[in-house]
């Protein structure tokens, strides 16, 4: 990462590599049925093979691009805990950085789906009074997520600024 998305005073903490695995698993679970349906269709109506082959190729290419992109994107998620605010960044093509002062946090939410639990990761979402605040951290290791939640909640109470 170049200097613009650098952070003074605290190190960037990368999220778990399991995030990429989970995303790839979800991708696989989405693409596999589509491929199966296209193959089945090709078997049922072979006279339309001229349609099915390009469709299959398109699905596979899109899947491959997503397979590569999702992993790269997953690696871009990181956060940094500073004295007074939390930095969250993500994105490769379009890069985003959200800075949330602890005193503005209203709610810290940790969620984890079945697949995420299988890999012991969770998503952490910070809510402020502004709906535009987009401070999610995907793929935080589960125990780190609960530590972070407790720490952020405590800091939020200590530095609360209100409306």
């Amino acid at each position: 990462m170049d200097a613009v998305f650098d952070v003074p005073g605290a190190p960037w903490v990368a999220v778990s590599p399991a995030l990429a695995t989970v995303r790839r698993a979800v991708l696989g679970l989405t693409v596999a049925p589509v491929v199966a349906v296209v193959l089945a269709a090709a078997v049922v109506s072979p006279e339309l093979l001229v349609v099915w082959v390009p469709v299959l190729v398109a699905v596979l290419v899109a899947g491959a691009v997503a397979f590569w992109g999702l992993a790269r994107n997953a690696a871009s998620w990181a956060y940094a805990e500073r004295d007074e605010d939390l930095f969250v960044r993500h994105g490769i093509l379009v890069r985003r950085l959200e800075v949330v002062p602890y005193g503005r946090m209203q709610l810290v939410e940790v969620s984890s789906g079945p697949l995420q639990r299988r890999f012991a990761i969770a998503s952490l979402t910070l809510h402020t009074a502004a709906p535009g605040t987009d401070a999610r951290i995907l793929g935080v290791p589960a125990d780190e997520a609960s530590r972070l939640r407790d720490r952020l909640t405590a800091l939020g109470e200590a530095q609360a600024a209100g409306l």
């Binding site: 985003r96 959200e98 949330v100 002062p101 535009g132 987009d134």
Partner: peptide, 22 residues
């Protein structure tokens, strides 16, 4: 409430970025 920094691919080439206040 919070502030975000956003940089699209073209902006990155030009060394630009946009700041949004929530």
């Amino acid at each position: 409430q919070s502030v975000s920094l956003r940089q699209g691919p073209l902006e990155r080439r030009l060394g630009l970025a946009s700041t949004q206040v929530h």
